[in-house]
Design a protein around this nucleic acid. Structure first.
Lengths: 329, 329
DNA sequence: TTGTATGCGTTATCAG
DNA sequence: CTGATAACGCATACAA
């Protein structure tokens, strides 16, 4: 087989520079090398346009400086933000990110885990909704928002605290009768605690509330019906709503506007995630903001320091509140 | 050096199965192998939990089945969409995507191109604003929205046609005095043609128009001043606006609302890109939609078929119009 | 400090 | 159709 596109090798550089192969390797890896040797090698590299072959290095060292990040997609702005910050955190540590889009598909998730193993990645970070995902034991594995077992660290924001925060905020802003709505009630993951926190605070405050959870496949219309069922004399019987995600909050706001309900005058709305228009403009709705950068940092430092087995199995990061025009401030 | 995490190798599988190394390789690669040998190998792979090492293969074959995709970030929803579709197009062809975020930084772009070469990727797709980017010759290279030279294929949507389409649409919808606004006038790339197309159609239609382009670093306030300068008796002297991007369209809409201008009653607004809320919900503004999937397909098929040097140096894909509530329909 | 030589896991060539 | 074996480019232990 003719060696086609493949450029010059270390041996070529060594020959060109009149030094030994090992010396070239040492220069490339920034080890201690005599000044004149170093210069000879560097100029030879320049002349030949040498780029070192990462496969050769990986094969030899069995380390790739790569972390696989499994995530449904990049279209959802929250995922996009996560990808951004995880990449930054990895880059800072001189690691590369191998991005894997599961598209919410279990088969793809499994394939990607295999691929990650083939690529001998140094660790895997995964955000998955797959209830039966089997996690490889021989490779550092960290999850976001899903607790699997004590041996698999889970990073999440303080969903329970966020739920409480939403309820308290609505109360402070004058709400006296509220509701929580979410979609996807089957899988119990960390975000499920948003409801628990909300309910807990409502009880503490003595604030009447209702909960409306839609099964995963259920039609969105059921939310609409829920809302119309709670209209009396053209007015909504709630004066505050907390939604499981910003996207749902936005969708519900659209519905309410069509029903003639004014936001935030008639009903105040709080979502969860902290999504901004175009990624960095105004918040789409008033929201409980997830500390995405901190989550990314925690994922990366955890997956990389896994050889210390003293990492906590659940890391919970504090959230904050931000106004986005759907509450009265 | 102790071989640490590294799992079983083909040699281990061969020993376990009682066959030769080459036979294992042939099974793994799906080549013709006797049925009983094949079964022995497959069950040995199962027993040992073998994963083939992609570095070994890459080293031997000098092919990685990987394309590098260089893009500023994933926070901008248009980029996020592009990433999504490029990945899908690659996956369909059994290629992997190595994603590189330039963060609009020229140094990073250069580093990533080097890294791509180290990784021996089979090609590079880049969306860059770097005016002096030097493009490697020894590797298939495709750009989005930037024409470098005839030897570097450029994929773009029909920006000129999109500009014309916007003008005609505004005219059809009753506008008689319009303006075009954009940011970043220094670099002449394909999107610059949006203005040219718009102007051309305005001239054809005999519709009076103004153009307002902001230099890259200039403060956004200048747009605000431009708009306030065009108020007469509390009314905007334009009844139609075309903006260089959806993000700018959205920003301008915010400004106009604060000024008491009603959209679309007083002024109709059209953006460019086709950004949707949360990636897949309603359009953020009325807009000229870029055919993102087709762009991604074109990038991938072009970068992979580069060995045929008969690819066109500029591929221009048709855009479409979509209403997003900022026009009267 | 520098040179030499070996092997990482794989594919491909060549005999059998 | 299968078995044996030689590279691929690199890092590193060891010798000089």
């Amino acid at each position: 087989m003719a060696k086609e596109r493949s450029g010059p090798t270390m041996a070529d550089v060594a020959r060109e520079a009149g030094v030994a192969l090992g010396t070239v390797s040492r220069v490339v890896n920034g080890e201690q090398v005599g000044e004149e040797y170093k210069n000879k090698v560097l100029s030879a590299i320049q002349r030949l346009g040498y780029h070192y072959n990462i496969s050769g290095r990986a094969l030899r060292t069995d380390r790739t400086n790569t972390i696989a990040f499994i995530i449904p997609n990049t279209i959802n702005p929250y995922f996009a933000l996560l990808v951004h910050h995880v990449n930054l955190a990895l880059e800072k540590r001189n690691y590369k990110m191998m991005l894997c889009f599961s598209e919410y598909d279990q088969g793809r998730e499994i394939e990607y885990i295999q691929m990650a193993q083939q690529n001998r990645v140094d660790g895997i970070i995964a955000l998955t909704y797959n209830p039966h995902l089997s996690i490889p034991e021989d490779i550092p594995f960290v999850t976001i928002d899903r607790f699997f077992s004590v041996s698999v660290p889970c990073i999440a924001s303080d969903n329970f605290g966020g739920g409480r925060m939403a309820a308290k905020k609505l109360y402070e802003l004058g709400c006296r009768r509220v509701a929580f709505m979410r979609v996807g009630s089957t899988l119990t993951n960390e975000p499920s605690k948003r409801k628990d926190g909300f309910v807990s605070a409502c009880v503490d405050l003595g604030m009447p509330f209702e909960v409306m959870a839609l099964e995963d496949g259920a039609p969105f219309d059921e939310f609409v019906r829920f809302l119309t069922d709670h209209m009396q004399n053209g007015r909504l019987t709630f004066d505050g709503l907390f939604l499981g995600t910003d996207m749902l909050a936005w969708q519900i706001c659209q519905v309410l506007k069509r029903m003639g309900v004014r936001i935030p005058e008639d009903v105040q709305v709080i979502g969860f995630d902290g999504i901004r228009m175009f990624g960095d403009q105004a918040y789409v709705t008033s929201t409980i903001v997830q500390p995405v950068q901190e989550i990314a940092e925690a994922c990366v430092s955890t997956v990389l320091s896994k050889h210390l087995s003293n990492v906590p199995s659940l890391i919970c990061l504090p959230v904050s509140y931000a106004s986005g025009g759907t509450t009265r401030e």
